[in-house]
Write a protein that binds this DNA or RNA. Sequence first.
DNA 1: TATGATTGTGGAATCGATTCCACATTAAGT
DNA 2: ACTTAATGTGGAATCGATTCCACAATCATA
Lengths: 331, 331
Amino acid sequence: MLTIKEIAEMAKVSRTTVSRVLNESGYVSEEARKRVLEVVEKTGYVPSQQAQSLRTKKTKVIGVVIPKLGTETAGRIVYGINDVLSERGYQILLTSTNLQTQKEIDYLRLLKSRQVDGIILIATNTNEELITEIKQLHLPFVAIGQDIPGVSSVTYDDFLAAKSITQLLIQRGRKSIAFIGVDEADQAVGLMRKQGYMDAIEEANLTICSEWMTKANFDIPSGYKAMAKIMNQTSESRRPDAVFCVTERIAIGAMQFLKEHGYQIPSQFSIAGIGASDISKYVEPALTTMDYENEVAGKEAAKFLLDQLEKNENIQKKVILNGRLIERNSI
Amino acid sequence: MLTIKEIAEMAKVSRTTVSRVLNESGYVSEEARKRVLEVVEKTGYVPSQQAQSLRTKKTKVIGVVIPKLGTETAGRIVYGINDVLSERGYQILLTSTNLQTQKEIDYLRLLKSRQVDGIILIATNTNEELITEIKQLHLPFVAIGQDIPGVSSVTYDDFLAAKSITQLLIQRGRKSIAFIGVDEADQAVGLMRKQGYMDAIEEANLTICSEWMTKANFDIPSGYKAMAKIMNQTSESRRPDAVFCVTERIAIGAMQFLKEHGYQIPSQFSIAGIGASDISKYVEPALTTMDYENEVAGKEAAKFLLDQLEKNENIQKKVILNGRLIERNSI
DNA sequence: TATGATTGTGGAATCGATTCCACATTAAGT
DNA sequence: ACTTAATGTGGAATCGATTCCACAATCATA
């Protein structure tokens, strides 16, 4: 590997001058600049990031913590982040907690010790410990998906999304709308979406049967099970005629159950979810859902982070993204 | 940020001794060791990775180049890689070429300049330039998905997968089997899968109509278009009664077209693909396909890389993973 | 008791960049 | 012509670790 010293010797200047040319700082004569650039060109010299970082305290690396690799949502967010970051010469150091909440904190520390310039966390909760940890990192920080007090964040309007989609169901004449949610430690998905649902129901003066409300995790089979529970627990006369699921995958699981048990969708039963990866478009019937533009969220988060980084202000920004309603055949 | 110097002062030893304790190298008295550990514990000191790397030339970071972020396949591979790597204290530096072949080389260089300890490339081609570039990186390297001469790789048996699934179609009584492939610059997906298909057809003494063979890219709409082309170009009497698509998403696009145009699947027309993310299970009818265990591929690749790294041998290993046939309702 | 091996510690060089400061040269202003 | 200012250049310190080498102390062996 070539070093700046060797380049300096070859161009017959000092290391200082080479550095000046490369960083466009200080005065350098046209003469010297040309010689240096020539040598750099010819040798393909690239400065060692190690050494640079050690000196400048900047690594041009952003740590990203995601809950689970291998899902389309995560992929899209990271895609958006990468899109903005790579253009400005930043790299992504990726970690995945695999849905283990407690690992979030570990990884934040790890990333700090790796001297990342900033961190983007795709958050799944708003625990006190987590917030404390974030505070004492003293690093530019952006959260996606959850509104964390005191830090910049990009969130979705989960309340509104849930409310709108529930209202759509009501508008289509459904009166008994079941609900499949997730754990409420997840503020955004668990709590806000539930509240949106409730709000729509109440405004329309509909009633909710407690048996109609269940919980699932984030995967398809758990949606299936939750739907089964709802239908099996209620006597025939009191069964719902629609279900709102807080995520797309839960909805697909629920749909699977309904189809297998002879319910006609949408003539007899309506189903709607939130989230729009490809899968929701190609199930039969295609799922009515709310599209969160994950790429956009990723991009916004990256921009916020760069703002903090480069303007060096301790600015806190919050963006709330709205979903796009996608009406398809499941209602 | 604390430095080793400060720790040394606090523990009343030299920096050398602190380093020895932390790296378990050289002689250190029980006395001194204890003092150092105490201070480290109390202060929460973590050595600067920057400085360490500069000195030791090891970063504990592995560069990963993937063709496209945001797909389930990519996600799963990265998941597998991360699983193995994180356990051994390695981190992933992620880059995505967004399907621009020429960017692959750029990123390989970039990663090298970042001093990564090794690189895993999810390859989409076997260009001469790419191979040359890989050679002159002089870095531990593993390719996934394409067999690249001279480097370790984890590949799938694309020929066999394509052949088996085509044979299955034949076995079910289909005689006119169309084919939707991709560009043959992609050895694995473009070429090998095509050959597998051809081989099965020939062995069964079936004929192929040239209008039945088309190309798509990797997305769903292109599958739709390719299928449309096949059906529109052939007169009614010579239309195929089945199609083999080289990827799952192409198959889903093709299926979409067929459904929209009134073909009954599977009674009238069969369809099969390769690749098994969730989506293929929930389309209607569920897609018969070949499952490539992407997580396993990622894990194997990571293991190979660590072998090269830690045993420091210039070993070249090749693994060919077999697919798992998943029979569902589309044939 | 002298000699050599083992154990323990620190000084100082090193990795490859950036940057402060001192100094030299040239141009401009009066 | 003579101070100022602007322009160019390099020496050397610095970032925070690791590691070679020299040296000291202790212990075992002949």
